[in-house]
Simulated scan of single mutants.
Amino acid sequence: MDIPIQIKQQTCMDCLSGQPLGFEIKMAFQPIIDWQSQSIFAYEALVRGPTGQGAGWVFDRINDSNKYYFDQSCRVKAIETAARLGCDTLLSINFLPNAIYNPETCIRATIEAAELYRFDLEKIIFEVTEGEQILNQNKLKRIFESYARHGFRTAIDDFGAGFASLEWLHSLRPSILKLDMDLIRNIHQDSARQRRLVDIQRVCAELGVIILAEGIETVEERDFLVNAGVRYLQGYLFAKPALEQLLTKAQVQGWR
């Protein structure tokens, strides 16, 4: 995929302006809980429209002609907003692998943004949703390897919903595996889901991959996962995404 020269030369401030997209984007942040230490482990940055419209509103306006710029803009906006809000935890940023034509070239805006806004590069997690159509699995592997060389953590979101298998994890080796909410839903009542979780935990333990359970909505789901040894948790039980706000531990529910 050839990227026009003027797009290659975009700066962080260009990405913040939103002009090439035709609309401004903002970021909402959802906390990720470290149950063992009873603290906030990270915040996931989730794209929103200019007045807080949901991600669906935004993605309805993204197409092949602007997805590269959109992907870059989301990274810069997430870093800028998190730094402005005083984020001192890890920051998880979603990205579109099919919008990346060269990992080393496309990472420049992220590095530039981190330097400009004084955000520690080693606190950044790049997260790809398993539900996105992955046109080239080897390309995604190269992206993950490139990001790891720069000190970034990587994550697969919605595991179980799309391309990835337990065997594929051996090749991709993400830092974090986020379990799909369909696996989490009512897991305390479903032996098949429980067996699936055990299989995933076994492979992740072998590879040194952190497991994160997302989509938790009930105390029963939380308690089963905690008792099963899942340390990192995310979901509406704790907090919904907050527009341009980093919720403190005191504002997060579901600790007890």
Rank of each mutant, 00 (worst) to 15 (best):
V209D: 04
D199S: 14
D199E: 15
I184V: 10
A205K: 12
E220Q: 15
M181W: 02
C204I: 09
E214T: 03
V219Y: 15
D180R: 00
Q194R: 08
N186I: 14
C204W: 02
D180K: 03
I187C: 06
E206S: 00
H188F: 10
G208A: 06
E206W: 00
V203A: 13
D190H: 01
Q194L: 05
S191L: 06
H188I: 11
A213V: 11
H188M: 04
G208S: 08
V203M: 07
D199C: 13
L207G: 13
G215A: 14
R202T: 10
L207T: 09
Q194D: 01
R185N: 07
Q201G: 01
Q189T: 09
L212W: 05
D182R: 09
I187K: 08
Q194T: 07
R196N: 05
V209Q: 06
V219C: 13
I187T: 06
E206C: 01
L183R: 01
R193P: 07
L212D: 07
V203I: 15
L197T: 09
V209H: 07
N186E: 15
V203C: 12
I184H: 03
R196M: 09
N186Q: 15
I216H: 14
E220P: 06
V203R: 11
V203Q: 14
A192D: 08
I211G: 12
I210P: 07
L212I: 09
Q189M: 13
N186G: 03
Q201M: 03
D190Q: 00
V203P: 08
R196D: 09
E217C: 12
E217F: 15
L207P: 04
T218D: 01
I187R: 04
V198R: 10
V209E: 05
A205E: 14
R185P: 01
V219P: 09
R185G: 05
I200E: 07
H188T: 04
I184F: 10
I211D: 02
L183A: 00
A213I: 06
E214A: 10
I184Y: 06
V198N: 15
